[in-house]
Design a protein around this nucleic acid. Structure first.
Lengths: 130, 130
DNA sequence: CTAGACCTTGTCACCGGCGTCAAGGCAACC
DNA sequence: GGTTGCCTTGACGCCGGTGACAAGGTCTAG
């Protein structure tokens, strides 16, 4: 399987695949003419990468999952390192949620305050208009 | 007030102030020697900018708030444009929270799954060991 | 022989809010 | 006049995951 086919089957671009390779996530053999040649296993690797990226992982976070897949596991999630990353990410997401809730409260308060202010101004203007 | 003093009093850097200026958020007069000279009002403007940046606003989002302050309002939040941005941001934050909750669920499930798998593997290994 | 559909490496561009360095001008004090 | 400490503009770097383009090699079909 050449890079174009892998890209299409994995739903990504050849550019991305080469990028993953330079960052040590995807491996390729080379044919005599220098083309990258992939086996079926790499398809699963790339799909794992894409799935994790979509969830918001960075390439560095993904590395353990790929290693786990390469170690022969059906899922990239079952190795200790992967689990550690999952835990960390879960904590990060929790922190993010909390932060957004704080921001949300603040925004709501400011919005409420602004509207109250506007109504008062409006009333005052009507008052002076008479 | 020169740029260094403003930066210090507003809790930011001169670099940031110049950046805000190039993006039309902060205004400065120039003294004879070309130095930026700020009046007290700009301090409030910069503080407003910083507060909104801290909440996660982009510079473009902040522009209406600055305009509102310049229009003579005590708060930058009371003008219609500002309120519109506040509403939009609130919606964005809500969307962000929801997205993170989705991710969180997914992470939790994968984590649970991974741990279950590991326990099974562990049991199986113990079984074969005997 | 040629067209076109692949592949290769290398490089620039993007987004946003700055940090940081360069090279120089101005003010004030010793 | 020399040092120190402010100020000026300009330009590059960063982070991450690509998109896009250039200039070339390779394979296949007509």
């Amino acid at each position: 399987m050449l890079i174009g086919e892998l890209a299409e089957r994995a739903g990504t671009s050849t550019r991305a695949l080469r990028y993953y390779e330079t960052h040590g996530l995807v491996r390729a053999d080379r044919s005599a003419n220098g083309y990258r040649v992939y086996d079926e296993a790499e398809l699963h690797v790339v799909r794992e990468i894409r799935a994790l990226l979509a969830v918001g992982f960075g390439l560095d976070d993904i590395r353990p999952f790929v290693a786990c897949l390469r170690a022969g596991n059906t899922s990239g999630h079952v190795c200790p390192d992967s689990v550690a990353v999952l835990r960390r990410k879960l904590a990060e997401v929790d922190a993010g949620i909390e932060r957004l809730h704080t921001v949300r409260r603040e925004l709501r308060d400011q919005l409420a305050h602004a509207i109250t202010q506007r109504e008062e101004t409006c009333l005052r203007l009507r008052g002076t208009a008479r």
